[in-house]
Design a protein around this nucleic acid. Structure first.
Lengths: 140, 140
DNA sequence: CTTGCTCCTCTAGCCACTAGAGAAAGTAGG
DNA sequence: CCTACTTTCTCTAGTGGCTAGAGGAGCAAG
């Protein structure tokens, strides 16, 4: 076991950028690692695993606070998995919500494109945006 | 023609909140309206129309800068509609991009839920997040 | 005249970073 | 040992699109 790797190597290994890694430490998502005599951070294998966990969760769209909870849970192997499941389920519901909203928007925006032969005076884009009655969109 | 309505009424008429209306003025999306002797803003019919246009575009997910351009275009009725169409098409592409990304995330997150009978030690949520190999997700 | 509403300006906070300044430490080559 | 280059350090400020709050002034009704 070496004493650990510097932040640049941790960054390369985890896919999380150097400033972001420091930011995660600052907000307490990552423990403060030991330092060299020259004040440089040294990350060990557990830190790298934690960084990969975070990166992966962020890629999947989890926000920081849920990730914080998941990391706590991951450190308690005997704890029932219910909470982790609930967090993931909430995230899934959130994704579904976003997808359905975007799908509705998509239909609305698609409906107003393709008027390239007209002038602005008769442009569907401008017209639809200006006149709420033209639109199928429901208020939030 | 009255001298115009105060900001609260403009807010009610447009669906844009009072502080947001002031914010739009601050960033130059909305012209600074005339004031009363007592320094209150007075919005006329054209301002209200502009506010409704903005609100509608925001509801459809347009960002501020595109809306700024669309507002400029809306003020030039003889201009060809090409630019407006291009802005809307870009937004549509953006929406499509987001939908497909979210759909991929949805599949990935769905795959790891429903392990409520296990402990954290064998939890799919924690496991999948911890081990990149478990995951179908592609690096951006 | 007092109560209560609306309005004013200004500053700071939200999220999750990202960018940049300026300095110190480490590393490779001569 | 000196120099050049890279990496790292801390700190501050900026992003987008608002939102919240402080502290004060105007205004309409009773």
């Amino acid at each position: 076991m070496t004493g650990g790797v510097p932040i640049g190597e941790a960054s390369r290994a985890s896919g999380i950028k150097v400033p972001t890694t420091r930011y995660y430490e600052q907000i307490g998502l990552l423990p403060s690692p030991p330092r060299t005599e020259g004040n440089r951070r040294l990350y060990d294998a557990a830190d790298l695993q934690r960084l990969r966990f975070i990166r992966h969760a962020r890629e999947l769209g989890f926000e920081i606070e849920p990730i914080r909870e998941l990391l706590t849970l991951a450190g308690e192997p005997d704890h029932p998995c219910e909470s982790a499941d609930r967090i993931a389920a909430a995230h899934l519901a959130d994704i579904d919500h976003k997808i359905s909203r975007l799908t509705a928007l998509r239909a609305e925006v698609a409906r107003m494109t393709d008027c390239s032969n007209h002038s602005v005076a008769e442009c569907r884009v401008i017209e639809v945006l200006g006149d709420h009655g033209e639109c199928l969109h429901e208020r939030h």
